[in-house]
Design a protein around this nucleic acid. Structure first.
Length: 201
DNA sequence: AACGGAACCAACCGCACGGGT
DNA sequence: CACCCGTGCGGTTGGTTCCGT
């Protein structure tokens, strides 16, 4: 299976074999990384340069840390993601030995799942452009609106289509009926949504 | 034990950017 | 200035493994 698939140019695709890894690592050990487009032919690899670069950066280069993300690393990822957004390479730069691909995968699976279950603490931001609204969304409100409940935590949401008049600043405690009505209105209009992507600690 | 769906993760793809000419 | 090329980044895909029924 591995390394048996070819692309339209006859280059190997798919999972790297140990032999390919060895060839790539040996070549880079002698010549250093870089010049990825010429590397495959010089190293004798039937791969494209992009594939070689990715393999080196994510798996073969020294000091790569494999294994489970620690609690400390997870906390850092959450905070950095809030600050930087999906800037995986920047986030990875703050986590020695971790790669952008690893962090991206981790975020897209484990953390989003955790978030959906409401286990993560902190402020939540809904990703609609416009004016921010801050409030607390209660469990009942969330359930009625078919939103995964992030109980008792501050929620930021934005309206996209309307003007600044849509901007409201609401109390951060309790079940706020104004907020709820506004939210329902936006949901009906399709101008608000709750892809819960970003958080602050 | 067999099956199907969910979850995970390595790898690919398309695009943006910067440097060189 | 325009173009080309190499590189890096983020989004997405697809194969494999896990898990529940």
């Amino acid at each position: 299976m591995a390394g048996t698939k070819l692309d339209s140019l006859g280059l190997n695709r798919g999972t790297w074999t140990k032999e390919e890894d060895h060839i790539l690592a040996s070549h880079i050990k002698v010549n250093g990384p870089g010049k990825w487009t010429q590397l495959p032919s010089k190293a004798g690899l039937n791969r494209c340069g992009k594939s070689c670069r990715l393999r080196w950066l994510n798996y073969l280069r020294p000091n790569i840390k494999r294994g489970n993300i620690t609690q400390e690393e997870e906390d850092l990822i959450v905070r950095l993601h809030n600050l930087l957004g999906n800037r995986w390479s920047l986030i990875a730069g703050r986590l020695p030995g971790r790669t952008d691909n690893e962090i991206k995968n981790y975020w897209n699976t484990f953390l989003k799942k955790k978030l959906r279950r409401g286990r993560l603490s902190g402020q939540v931001t809904a990703s609609i452009a416009g004016n921010p609204i801050r409030s607390t969304i209660t469990q009942n409100t969330a359930l009625q609106l078919n939103i995964e409940p992030i109980i008792g935590r501050r929620v930021e949401m934005h309206a996209s289509s309307s003007a600044a008049s849509e901007s409201l600043l609401l109390p951060c405690f309790g079940n706020n009926s104004v907020f709820r009505e506004k939210l329902e209105e936006w949901m009906v209009q399709g101008t608000a949504c709750f892809p819960v992507d970003d958080f602050l600690m």
